[in-house]
Design a protein around this nucleic acid. Structure first.
Lengths: 184, 184
DNA sequence: TTCATTTTTTGAACGGTGTTCATAATGGCG
DNA sequence: CGCCATTATGAACACCGTTCAAAAAATGAA
């Protein structure tokens, strides 16, 4: 069902509909719905694919053997780049709230975990005295912060008088935060 | 049209509809639409009210004469508190994308600006050598970061093995970031 | 008050949405 | 071929935001 994400390259998510999608792939609306269970779960499947794309890009960016700190910078830059290149797709990934139904598959969970592990590994290299639980929390803190900058940036809700670049904001965030954190 | 936000206290935004709202306030759907122009603009008006609520709470929290750094902490805590107390209302404020139509009114803009000014004032007290443009960008960076933590926290998308508290994440973020930033 | 004019409100209608389900088409295989 | 199980359909349902001619209400002048 990559047709979903292909649609989202050019049009926002709220323009997409089960019926349009059905016409696109040559199926009846009802067919799609008893294949995925519901429209919401279809979106969930598309989001799973999106997350795979992101995971792969971030994984690639992490393989280089630079310093832990610049690796974190590359990580965040890649994350921002994806959000900027595929804003509709990226937004859908986070704005879709699964409705009391099933949780997302745990192979998805594990893939997310692996990404956080990369961050935590960098944090370990930056401060080998740090406790594992701290690195766990800090990895979430950093990622959520970067995520917030990306989100408000692509929605143009930073309310800046002069347009500020998300790149430099992320860079400043990481530089200052890490410079303090890595010394306890 | 505070009935909108009253509804959002107990039910998510996607459960709300023009027709339900019309029944609630005793008007016909069509009446509401040629009063606000469209459903989207009605939501915009409700969001304006939400932003006023937030602005007032943050403003109150800033009047105390504590140190600049703890004032920033109070600021972020109040922001998080509102998001946690009114998650649907808060989400709608940021997930509603205005559709190619009008911009949000500029009295709204100025109210947002005033909030950022408070942050920038704290930043100035923390580092009087800082340049104004830097404070401008850093205020956005801090706010976007705090916002990201709030957003992922109330959506429960932090993917933490043990539930981590958003409060401590925000506190750590501000502490470490500012401790580095305030010395250039 | 009465009547004409402007403003406000309505409700039916339109095209769209996700979802259900009896029915129909299809595929596999003795 | 005939039978069964799987798969796909499309009409129907209840809802959505939006439009607009007509009706109701408010206004003001005579």
């Amino acid at each position: 069902m990559s047709q979903v994400n292909r649609f989202l390259q050019s049009e926002p998510a709220h323009q997409l509909s089960l019926r349009k999608l059905a016409k696109m792939v040559g199926y009846s609306p009802g067919t799609l719905i008893n294949l995925f269970g519901s429209y919401s779960r279809l979106i969930l499947a598309a989001n799973a694919q999106t997350l795979d794309q992101i995971a792969q890009r971030l994984g690639d960016r992490m393989e280089q053997d630079e310093s832990a700190e610049t690796r974190l910078h590359r990580f965040a830059e890649a994350y921002l780049a994806f959000a900027q290149e595929h804003p509709h797709q990226w937004r859908l990934l986070f704005e879709h709230h699964l409705d009391e139904g099933e949780e997302l598959p745990q192979w998805q969970w594990s893939r997310i975990d692996r990404l956080f592990d990369m961050i935590e590994q960098c944090l370990y290299e930056l401060n080998k005295n740090s406790r594992a639980e701290d690195r766990h929390e800090v990895s979430r803190t950093i990622w959520a912060s970067v995520h917030g900058i990306c989100a408000l940036s692509i929605d143009d809700k930073l309310f800046a008088r002069t347009t500020v670049s998300a790149e430099s904001m992320i860079s400043a965030l990481l530089t200052h935060f890490l410079s303090s954190w890595k010394q306890y």
